[in-house]
Computed example of a mutant assay.
Amino acid sequence: MSTLPPSPIPIFTTVADYREWRRKAFIDNKSVGFVPTMGALHDGHLCLVRRSLQENDLTVLSIFVNPAQFAPHEDLAIYPRTLERDLQVLMEQRVADRKPSAVFLPTVKEMYPGGIHQDVAHQKGSFVEVKGYSEQMEGKSRPTFFRGVATVVTKLFNAIEPTNAYFGQKDIQQAFLLRRMVTDLLLSHPSPDHLHIVPTARDATDNLALSSRNVHLSPEGRKVAPVLYASLRAAEDCWNKGGSKAECIDAATNIIQQQIERVKEQGTDVRLKLDYIEMNDAGSFEVLGDNVGRAEKSDGAVILSGAIFVDQTRLIDNILLGSAV
């Protein structure tokens, strides 16, 4: 932290220094919007920043690559870290006369004073779990992921004390889970109705969901990656036409399988693998039964989600059926 790049936006590396700044905002009765990130900013993040600038007097963005949400075999070491570029693109954001007000850039020691180990079995100290909402969907593939997310976001909310917080729909399970956590823990900054879920930002040409992990895609892999959203759209179309959950999942997986066959026929080096396509109740995250259709779920929203591997890069996406966030 002794070699921070120059920035006209104040950078706070400790909770104590940030809280001095936050106290003044309280005294001045100014609202604070908050966008938590792990850096490697793309337009998905910047859409959240612009939404915050539009709705708040002050906007804070955090950059922290959280070890607790990476399992020992996952890509913590290669997660992109582009601080200088992140600050540059952040400085370019404006809404009317508002611009980003502060960056919270803590060290691992600052966020985990007692230390942190990626292996849950070796972790010591205080952690947050949201029981019954962490095991489905992404939690099924990444069993310790949401424990790490809930823990670090609780810490960030305690440190930042935001009036409003902004999350992208691409990580829909995370956003709904955090709203549940804020409700259950009686947090006031933000309150549940001030935790906002913003529609997924997509590439204008092929609708690929923007993600920091997209930088790991090869040119050939980048051409294949949009198949995930195409498969979800096929499932959505099936659902809207009255298909059952099983029929909709089949429609989606067929799109993926057809792309896998095309890749093989073309003889490219891209390896495409389906992780999952699933449909869950948006309130409980419970998996829908195979015979459930749109008529049976007219009383609530459904999360249609999926994940694929393009070579070693894991991509996720989702569509909400029946309700907006």
Results as ranks from 00 to 15, higher is better:
residue 24 K to H: 10
residue 150 A to D: 11
residue 121 A to I: 06
residue 197 I to H: 00
residue 243 G to I: 00
residue 267 G to M: 02
residue 168 G to T: 13
residue 281 D to Y: 09
residue 55 E to H: 14
residue 276 Y to N: 08
residue 83 L to S: 07
residue 310 V to S: 10
residue 88 Q to A: 14
residue 322 G to M: 08
residue 320 L to Q: 06
residue 121 A to Y: 06
residue 263 V to T: 09
residue 253 T to P: 03
residue 64 F to Q: 09
residue 137 M to H: 10
residue 189 H to L: 12
residue 59 T to W: 07
residue 168 G to E: 02
residue 79 Y to G: 08
residue 268 T to P: 09
residue 7 S to A: 11
residue 29 N to Q: 14
residue 124 K to T: 14
residue 120 V to R: 11
residue 230 A to W: 00
residue 320 L to I: 15
residue 32 V to C: 13
residue 23 R to S: 14
residue 228 L to P: 03
residue 169 Q to Y: 08
residue 204 A to N: 11
residue 10 P to F: 08
residue 88 Q to P: 08
residue 108 V to Q: 08
residue 199 P to Y: 04
residue 249 I to L: 06
residue 71 A to H: 05
residue 166 Y to P: 11
residue 8 P to R: 10
residue 266 Q to V: 00
residue 307 A to K: 00
residue 205 T to C: 06
residue 243 G to L: 02
residue 316 I to T: 09
residue 182 V to F: 01
residue 104 F to L: 01
residue 115 G to H: 01
residue 301 A to C: 14
residue 176 F to T: 15
residue 238 C to G: 04
residue 229 Y to Q: 08
residue 202 R to E: 05
residue 149 V to N: 00
residue 61 L to Y: 02
residue 158 N to W: 07
residue 175 A to R: 03
residue 77 A to D: 15
residue 229 Y to W: 10
residue 312 Q to H: 12
residue 31 S to W: 08
residue 45 H to M: 07
residue 247 E to T: 04
residue 5 P to H: 05
residue 235 A to R: 06
residue 255 I to W: 01
residue 77 A to F: 00
residue 115 G to D: 01
residue 179 R to Q: 08
residue 222 R to T: 01
residue 93 Q to G: 07
residue 200 T to H: 03
residue 71 A to I: 00
residue 200 T to C: 06
residue 57 D to T: 14
residue 131 K to S: 14
